[in-house]
Design a protein around this nucleic acid. Structure first.
Lengths: 174, 174
DNA sequence: CCTCTTGTTGAGATCTGATCTCAAGAAGCT
DNA sequence: AGCTTCTTGAGATCAGATCTCAACAAGAGG
C-alpha cells in the first residue's frame, strides 16, 4: 500500500545525514517495499535485474545496510546461511516460525513474550537494542507429508520403529 | 564435572550407528566438554592444537556436526558470523543475552517464554524441533562505559542532542 | 596377531555469502 | 555550467564452512 510515508522518511533521513539521493537507492527502496517479505540480497539483485533495473551487487549490499540503519528494514538470519531482509512495519514487533521442510516462514506476534523479555533484561541490567526469536520445525503440511511418507510403504523394511526418523525431515522430494 | 555419562552416551551412539570410535572423536568430545561455553570451531581447533592434540579443521567441523546430531552439543549463531557450539546440559533450556559492546554472552532461563512458545506452535499447528532466542544490546558495564565516554568531553560539540547517538554503541575502544 | 574391508582423516582446493578496492560517474552546492 | 565529494560497478578479496581424494586405521573375521 502507501509506502509514501516511508519513502518520505527515507529521503529525509538521507538528506539529514548528508547522503545523496540516487536512482539506485530509490530503486532498491521500491523493490524491497514491493516484495512481500523476507528476501535476501541476491534475490533482490536478481529481481531487480529481471525488471531491467541496473544495479550492482555491491550497491545492493551497501544500501540494504543503509535501509537497516535508518530503521526501514530489518536484517536477520532465518534459514541458516544468508541474511534475509524485510521492510519494517511501523511499531509491530513480530517473530518467526521457520519450516525446515518447505522453508516457509510464518510470522507471529506475542506481547506476552515481549513482556517477559523486558523483565529478563531488567533483571540482568541489560539494555536491549534488538532480538531474534525463531522457532524451527515442521509446518502442518510438512508433518502430514512426512507421516504419509512413512505409512504407505507398509512393507517389511528393517522396521526402525523407534528413533531414527529425524533424517527424513530435511529433504522431501519436490 | 562428570561427563562420564555423556561420554558413554556418545560412544554408544557411535556404535549404534556403525560409526567408529576414533582418537580424534574422543579428543574433540573431551575438549568441548572441558570448555565452559560457547566456542567456535576455529577456537576449538586452536585450543586443541595448543594442547598438542593433532586434529585437522575438517575433522573438527565434521565431528562437531556429529555431536550436534547425537544431541550432545548445540550449534548457534550468536554473534553474527561464526557458529558457536556449546555442550548440552540435560534438559535445561536456556536462551542468550549477547552484548554488542564487549561480546559477552549471558544465559537466561525463562519457563514463561517456553510456555508461550508452546502455545504459539499449537495455535499454528506447527511442530517445533528447536528454537533460537537471543537478545542483543549492551550489558551493564558497556552502558556505563558508553555514558562515561559521552559525559567527559563536555566541550562545544555540534551538540546533536536528539537522535544520532546509536553509532557510538558498536565500537568502544578497548 | 594378521588381514581385509570400509569408514575416517588431513591438507588443500573449493564454495558461498559478504565486503572491499579504486577508477569512473553523477548529486547537488554555488 | 563547474567543481567537489559521495556513490557506483566490476572484480578482487575475505572468512567461514564444506568438499575432495589419497593415505590411514578401526574393528570384524580368521
Amino acid at each position: 500500500m502507501s509506502d509514501a510515508r516511508e519513502r518520505q522518511k527515507f529521503l529525509q533521513w538521507l538528506r539529514d545525514r548528508g547522503h545523496r539521493v540516487t536512482a539506485e537507492r530509490l530503486a532498491l527502496f521500491e523493490e524491497i517495499f514491493a516484495q512481500h517479505r523476507h528476501i535476501d540480497a541476491e534475490e533482490l539483485l536478481d529481481s531487480m535485474k529481471a525488471r531491467a533495473l541496473k544495479i550492482s551487487r555491491a550497491t545492493v549490499y551497501r544500501n540494504l545496510d543503509l535501509l537497516v540503519e535508518c530503521g526501514l528494514a530489518r536484517k536477520q538470519r532465518l534459514g541458516q546461511n544468508r541474511f534475509l531482509y524485510e521492510h519494517v512495519h511501523p511499531g509491530q514487533r513480530h517473530d518467526h516460525l521457520v519450516c525446515t521442510g518447505c522453508g516457509r516462514v510464518v510470522e507471529f506476534v506475542s506481547p506476552g513474550i515481549a513482556a517477559l523479555q523486558g523483565e529478563i533484561c531488567r533483571a540482568h541490567g541489560f539494555s536491549p537494542t534488538s532480538h531474534t526469536l525463531q522457532i524451527s520445525g515442521l509446518c502442518n503440511a510438512c508433518v502430514q507429508k512426512r507421516d504419509e511418507a512413512q505409512r504407505p510403504p507398509e512393507r517389511a523394511l528393517p522396521s526402525p520403529a523407534h528413533v531414527e526418523t529425524a533424517r527424513t525431515l530435511s529433504g522431501p522430494p519436490p
